[in-house]
Write a protein that binds this DNA or RNA. Structure first.
Length: 371
RNA sequence: GCGGAAUUGGUGAAGUGGUUAACACGCCGGAUUGUGGCUCCGGUAUGCAUGAGUUCGAUCCUCAUAUUUCGCC
């Protein structure tokens, strides 16, 4: 069965949407933040801990799992859910982002993208067909089209050419996709150009994907530009399909883009920041390594309902764990940070129900930037 | 007691008779956006054991003192 998106309510003062996404592995409400589990693990968290932060869905990565352990091993295990012992919804990224982070422009051809295996240096070719074929075998609930994620700034000429290629790649992927239990999303590119974003949306909608993502953001542009890019896409996307903004996870960005009609987000930041000793709080991001926390025996946040805060692990102890490079520190902070972002989406859903998102945003920003 | 060697920041240390004393770790900050899992970027010795001398100029040469260390009685 494919996913089913139901639009439950639109907020009065913005384009924010409350929705419901039904998958073979469970139903959850949107907006929702997806924790990133690149290597079939949300780094440092057990499956029970992923559930405990109320993650509706998680993300894994085609490129990484292709290289190691290989999609055939995962297929033999019974698919990604069985393999990683996780019975909730999973979305797989296509490897398109690795085009941006690993490849050089000359490595991109019509056929696909030439990489060097980052593990052993072997030359690799990832094509739209190959990416979809791997994702079919991984048996995730949602697969992504293989796209070219371009950086910012990029010339209009380049973006034009790249969007057309991304569209051809989307079509090629769609043609080989053959997993009836897996949905497939198209990815909107087009840089900062409204007509190109619009064109990309219109062509993707003609191909009739199960959902749509917006890519090519958080690649070096400033916030106003990112928000414009999102609006240029959501403006033309069909309201009966779910929308996913890729790679965005800054709290303020989540609020701003929910208000522009985004339903799903993912970002490595909560887990990466945790490993490097940072914690989100209502009053801004803190660096737990700062010496002022050396003898602060209070939890990160008294009104946080995450395991770490509820258990009253103190800042002094967390600081010690991070400074001593103990994995428990990364784990406790990851739990806190992911829960913080998911809690944020819960608050936003509530605000959509009550049509109070403008006031919510104003108060959040006031607190977050220390009034 | 006699003789030798050593003494550079929080630590391990490099270094030179002449502008800002290398590097590493630590420490103090910052960064991080569809994760190439111990990453990246800053800051961190107004001073080279102490005192005196030689010199235009000494962390570097000389002497004394202190401390450490090795050997001998």
């Amino acid at each position: 069965m494919k996913i089913e998106y139901t639009l439950l309510k639109k907020e009065k003062n913005s384009d924010a949407r409350l929705g419901k996404l039904k998958t073979n592995y469970g139903t959850f409400e949107t907006p929702m933040f997806m924790p990133v589990g690149t290597e079939a693990t949300v780094k440092t968290l057990s499956v029970e801990e992923i559930k405990d932060v109320h993650a509706g869905i998680i993300l894994a990565n085609t490129y990484h799992l292709w290289l190691r352990p290989g999609e055939d091993i995962i297929a033999r295990a019974g698919g990604l859910h069985e393999f990683m012992h996780y019975d909730g919804p999973i979305l797989t990224d296509s490897g398109g982002y690795q085009v941006f982070s690993l490849a050089r422009p000359k490595d991109i051809t019509e056929e696909g993208v030439h990489f060097k295996n980052h593990l052993n240096g072997d030359p690799l070719l990832l094509t739209p067909e190959k990416s979809i074929e791997i994702q079919n075998k991984l048996d995730s609930d949602i697969a992504m089209s293989f796209d070219e994620c371009i950086g910012y700034p990029a010339t209009r000429e380049y973006v034009e050419k790249s969007v057309e290629r991304t569209l051809r790649w989307a079509k090629r992927g769609l043609q080989v996709h053959n997993n009836p239990n897996q949905s497939l999303f198209g990815i909107v590119q087009g840089g900062e150009y409204e007509d190109l974003r619009r064109h990309c949306v219109e062509e993707l909608v003609k191909m009739d994907f199960d959902g749509y993502s917006i890519g090519g953001t958080s690649v070096g542009e400033d916030k106003p530009t990112m928000y414009k890019m999102v609006s240029y896409a959501t403006k033309y996307l069909p309201s009966d399909k779910v929308r996913y903004l890729m790679g965005v996870g800054d709290p303020i960005d989540i609020i701003e883009n929910v208000m522009r009609g985004i339903d799903l987000f993912d970002c490595v930041s909560p887990t990466r920041l945790a490993r490097h000793g940072h914690a989100y709080t209502k009053y801004g991001k803190i660096n737990i390594k700062n010496s002022k926390y050396k003898d602060d025996f209070t939890p990160i946040s008294i009104d946080c309902d995450c395991y770490t805060c509820k258990s009253k692990y103190s800042k002094a102890y967390l600081r010690h764990l991070i400074v001593a490079n103990e994995t428990l520190g990364a784990r406790l902070l990851s739990i806190h940070n992911i829960r913080f972002l998911i809690h944020l989406t819960e608050d936003l859903r509530e605000a959509i129900k009550n049509d109070t998102i403008l006031a919510y945003k104003e108060q959040f920003i006031k607190d977050y930037y220390h009034t």
